[in-house]
Nucleic acid binder design. Structure first.
Ligand SMILES: [Mn+2]
Ligand SMILES: [Mn+2]
Ligand SMILES: [Zn+2]
Ligand SMILES: [Zn+2]
Lengths: 135, 135
DNA sequence: TAAACTTTGCAATTGAGTTGCAGTATATTC
DNA sequence: GAATATACTGCAACTCAATTGCAAAGTTTA
């Protein structure tokens, strides 16, 4: 079994044709990809089908999404063992020049002291600036 | 001179009628407000004029914007002394139930170790979950 | 005052995201 | 295996926040 199929099996997602294509596309690309990126990459697959695959993936924790302020949500395959819990979260970096987004997997986000009775569920942490290629 | 006018003077922004109204509206509200919120609040002011005021404010560092994933950018007046530099940045909290956004001004964001040659300019740090009123 | 520049309101456009629906494929039941 | 139920897909249409073009109104400068 290939990597994509394996992941879908583990995360309990029906391995349909479109889903395998989308997940493979994400696995083949190091950096988080937008719906449009994927649509361009998979030229014969419909946008709304890709969109629904991504929604399913997110729900089943196959991928996580990043709101990097570019106007397009980016998607990246969750690292092994990730369950999208607060302790699994990581920073992202958005390059304002080349508009690539990076998962910064090396350091987890610290525990953030919230006001009384605020309960954290998720986070979207984006550092913006210039990446190594653009600085 | 009133607070809004004072701020505009300090930040070198022409204190036009619309700008004063918009800035006052933001000052009167504790929580970051969206363009639509402001439009609703200032019923006789045109959306695009408010929009352009906000863009000017952001450029001149009168306000900072928050991409909280709600689909609408929120704007909040910068705290005194803020210059929107990395050390001025703070976390935000987005309540997934009431969809209010909060500036968490008490703790600044820590220094984040970036990969070699990545240069930070700005950040958009959003913790999501339930606020005190909703949890 | 006249010219130059800035700001504003209105209408129209953009574009990512989302949805309804009918056709196709896959799974389940008989 | 055929009949039925369920899941998935492609297409077209729609939503809605953001953005823009433009001309009118307001302000500053010469
Ligand atoms: Mn990531
Ligand atoms: Mn803030
Ligand atoms: Zn870059
Ligand atoms: Zn709340």
């Amino acid at each position: 079994m290939e990597k994509a199929e394996e992941i879908l099996k583990i995360k309990d997602v029906n391995p349909t044709a479109v889903r395998i294509l989308v997940l493979r596309y994400l696995l083949e690309h190091l950096k988080p990809q937008s719906l449009k990126d994927i649509e361009k990459g998979l030229m014969h697959t419909d946008r709304s089908s890709i969109f629904r695959s991504l929604k399913t993936f997110e729900e089943k924790k196959v991928v996580h999404s990043i709101e990097d302020g570019s106007g397009m949500i980016k998607y990246a395959v969750c690292p092994t063992g990730c369950n999208c819990d607060p302790q699994d979260l990581h920073y992202h970096f958005y390059c304002t020049k080349c508009s690539y987004t990076y998962c910064l997997l090396d350091n987890p986000i610290p525990i953030i002291k919230l006001p009384q009775n605020f309960k954290m569920q998720r986070a979207n942490m984006v550092v913006k600036g210039l990446c190594n290629k653009c600085s």
